[in-house]
Write a protein that binds this DNA or RNA. Structure first.
Lengths: 216, 216, 216, 216
DNA sequence: GAATAAACGAGACGGTACGTCTAGTCTTGGA
DNA sequence: TCCAAGACTAGACGTACCGTCTCGTTTATTC
């Protein structure tokens, strides 16, 4: 999180409380004001901290918000719910619950929008938000294979492609449902979605069966 | 697009050329600068127009960018490619191609991010961008039913839910692939994605079959 | 007042009522808003006239305000009050009364300020405001000479200088009293002032007497 | 001059050089552009200072110009020239010389015009420009009394009234001569004016003599 | 137990963009 | 040809934040 590169040991150490206060203040400001009206000066004031302290640790609004939002997604877990379908439903619901919070909604999407022109920012998002989520997918698949619900992967490249696809579909669908359609990703929706996804995956990786309407 | 509500007929009429120039300048600025560094003053200059002319017609950056981006999505079409799978692949590829353009990328996502705190903006996005896309889904389904690839819908509420689900999955997946994973939604990916989606849908709406690992 | 130079007689004639309405609206706006916040658009609205009509007749704010204020000073008169002192007191009081009106106060001074960089404006002020006042001084002197209160002028250049001096002293003192000192130029003050002025003038034009403290 | 009221000692102190540069730039702009075309943005640029720095210290154009012009009038002095008449002539010439400078001309009059609707501004003008001048009048009178040219004042209220009258007459006449008549207040004019003023005053305060033409 | 060195709060600094306002011109349709 | 209405270009307004800087002060470590 911090910028300070060299191993510094002399001088007054940075206040750990400041970090916590700043990130909390950032989330508070996101809730009240949203991304576009959030200002670093205001965050500093809310955190009881000088603007310089803030700039000493984060390069700008984007980085700060990504870190503030990443803490929310750190709550994601994958308890064993007994079946692949239940595991997926569970984690999708968790993801949807986080995304329903106002501080995540506007903050995350705006950061993603900015990341289209800022590779460092995209990398930061990937490292602190996306990859941990993808790890859950991997963990879920491993568990399903252990249960015998899924066949063991043979081709690792193919396996990586499949994980990426699943991840884009899951995360994308929830995000789109929540932000664009502005409808809740509630239990019913998640069940329908999981059903389609799972059937599609098993049928796809299964007998390589005919697609309906594919005449050849 | 314009703000002027009442039917006014006196006074000098608004320049139609200005609208065109402003929207084109907005897209140009989006490409060069991205959302966050785009300024209305700069857009006005590029369009060869005074700032007041711009503010007379749009309430702010958000509205302007939505309109500018909406014109891009107006290009979407659904030519009959002979099968449901081909139709879906075709339209997803088109959607991905538009989303790959820099003016769409940062502009659209930022507008969506803002729309989480601005209902009017969300409505504008829905009306000018989302709903036309959803119409394509409806058209595609009607065509597939005519071909006999899909059974006719019986329950209209259920039908609407399905369309919404499809739409969130398709649009969400492409967006996530493009913006978050930052990988191209190319032909190969689209084929994999379409395969999963289509198999999932037909299996789901079909025999209401067993989900793998669903123990009850 | 109007700009139109050539003798035009074709087309729709200009509305005479518009002139009156515009000047009245200008004074009204001067009272309510003062010079600096007076805008030509607002004056046009008050007068129920289009901005173009206004610009067709006056070159700008300065010219308009000078004309509007000049009408106030047109009220100045010099009835014969029987003595030079009474005449002076009378006209000074009239002048002070006009200057006490808010539309005159801020409008006139601002126009004078502008005239320091605009010769045409100064000429306009001189012609429509200053010279008529100076004529009153001439008239008063002629009347006093007729009464025998003042000796007849012999040197016309000297006479002109004296009139100019008197005029600067009278007008300047009243203006300064009213605007800078912000005290009313009431009857008591006018009497004191007139006394000093008149004694000074008669002593000065008289025996060319010793100035007190002039040791040469 | 500054706005900041409480004695603050934390934070970066204000740059003293900025004040100097801003006031100098203001005078420069007054000379080149005059009051009405002077813009604070331009002054800031000339002073090599940000607009915010300017607004942090002055409330607006009026206040800034008053302070800039006040520095000019700070040059006024009253060296002992040996006689009351010489003292008056000297200080009037000085005053006229300042008023002849273009930065004083348009700036001062415009500020006075504005002050008719802004009491704080009038107070500022009085405190920083008018009162120091009035002090010169008091000093001159004290010196004349010491010389025996003037009788000692008995009634203090009457004395104050006289000083005010003198001041309005002197300042008003010079201003009117310079700005309205647009003639130089040169040595010859000043001598004539001083002669009239002084004769009037001595005659007035003296034997309370008959005004010419005052029949009773 | 200084001395050192960095972090801290406060707030001024040079900038940039904002969204509004006014100036003065131009373009309609109607009188 | 004038008029009312209102859109147009141009540019200043005063404000808000940005990210940097200079202060004086506070707190750990190191000598």
């Amino acid at each position: 999180m911090q910028i300070r590169t060299p191993a510094c040991r002399t001088g007054r150490p940075r206040s750990a409380a400041a970090d916590t206060a700043i990130l909390a203040a950032t989330r508070e400001a996101l809730v009240e004001l949203g991304w576009s009206k959030l200002t670093l000066g205001d965050v500093a004031t809310r955190a009881g901290v000088a603007k310089t302290t803030l700039y000493r640790r984060w390069a700008g609004k984007n980085e700060l918000v990504v870190d503030a939002v990443a803490e929310l997604f750190g709550e994601l877990e994958l308890p064993d719910r007994g079946s692949l379908a239940a595991d997926i439903e569970g984690v999708v619901l968790q993801f949807a619950a986080i995304l329903a919070r106002p501080e995540a909604k506007s903050g995350l999407m705006a950061a993603v929008a900015e990341s289209t022109r800022d590779d460092a920012l995209r990398e930061r998002i990937r490292a602190s938000i996306v990859d941990p989520q993808k790890d859950l997918v991997l963990e879920g698949r491993a568990r399903a294979q252990a249960r015998g619900e899924l066949p063991p992967q043979t081709d690792p490249a193919e396996a990586a492609r499949t994980v990426d696809l699943i991840f884009d579909v899951v995360a994308g669908a929830v995000v789109h449902r929540t932000l664009v359609s502005a409808e809740p990703a509630d239990e019913e929706w998640v069940r329908s979605f999981t059903r389609v996804l799972l059937l599609g995956l098993t049928a796809s990786t299964g007998p390589s069966g005919d697609l309906p309407g594919e005449h050849v």
